Amino acid sequence: MVSLTSFCHSSLPSSSSIDSLLPTKTHTVITRALKFHSLGGDHLRFNRRQFHQKRSFALRSAVDEVVIVPSTPSSNTEEPKSEPVASLKLKLLFVVSGLNKGLTANVNDIRKADAAAKELEATGGPGDLSVDLDRLQGRWKLIYSSAFSSRTLGGSRPGPPTGRLLPITLGQVFQRIDILTKDFDNIVELELGAPWPLPAVEVTATLAHKFELIGSSKVKITFEKTTVKATGNLSQLPPLELPRIPDQLRPSSNTGSGEFEVTYLDADTRITRGDRGELRVFVIS
């Protein structure tokens, strides 16, 4: 990924260096064009602008393979501004891939993810949610949380541990945001182990919140209720609403509300940083 970023900012390479930068077919066309042009050929004109267009096409093709949609190509000789952002997004996704949403991340993994996120945040900027609140709308899939490295389902807050102590397997995690009703739901898929020969029980827990915008990029959420719905073979069972812990019995570390800042947001990727230093990366689902 570092080489891709360097390539995005590089100046026009010589024909001898094209071999290491472009796919074979594009390389053949450009190399012949450069050689023919240097001999003063009149039948094929290949200038710096055309080269930039071909090089941009090669980069966009590489990015498209990882489902990151680029902006419309620029008509001038400069590289499209979206390409550095796209390459930084690709770098971040590469760093957090394979970490099981952060559950298997070690200290080095957390450091690399944080550094990659900061690069994207610095380039893309946080944006102004007071103007573009509708960009939050939708169902977002969590692909990384730095707090899950604590090996608890509560992340940076207290929660049931995963692993051998309790037979709980964490599945997909989503955030469903409705800007009209101000609903903010954390949706967690879980698999609960059962004694043999009983099969595991699959459930979906929905932690319902209301949200409000604070300033231009900070969001405050307030907990309302938790609903558990069995899925799989037990999907015919009605959902169960768990009783809420009275405020006077609630631990001081779990007040039922929280805040986070949206540090990067575009049509398909969102980065947030929580009030306890938690880094989260989401993609639109």
Rank of each mutant, 00 (worst) to 15 (best):
Q50P: 02
D19E: 10
F36V: 04
K35L: 11
I18G: 00
S11I: 07
A33S: 14
S15L: 06
D64P: 09
P13N: 14
S6C: 05
S14F: 07
Q53V: 02
G41C: 15
A58M: 08
N47M: 02
S16W: 12
S6L: 06
R45F: 10
S38Y: 15
S3M: 07
D19T: 13
L22A: 02
R48Q: 08
S14Q: 07
L22W: 01
H43C: 14
L34E: 06
V2L: 07
I18H: 10
H37C: 01
L12N: 04
V2Q: 05
H43D: 11
L4V: 08
T28C: 10
R48L: 01
Q50T: 01
Q53P: 02
E65Y: 00
G40H: 11
S15N: 14
L44A: 15
T72H: 02
K54F: 08
I18P: 00
D64L: 11
V2Y: 03
L44H: 15
A33R: 15
F46C: 01
H37N: 08
V69A: 06
L34N: 09
S11K: 13
R60G: 00
S56P: 05
R49K: 14
S38C: 04
A58S: 13
F46S: 02
L59R: 04
F7M: 03
K25V: 14
L44G: 15
S11M: 06
M1H: 12
A62F: 02
A33W: 08
F36E: 02
S61D: 08
V63Y: 00
S10C: 01
E65D: 03
P23D: 02
D19Y: 14
A62H: 09
A33T: 02
V2A: 07
L22I: 06
I18T: 06
R60P: 00
L34H: 13
F46N: 03
F7V: 01
C8S: 11
S38R: 09
F57T: 13
S3T: 05
L39N: 09
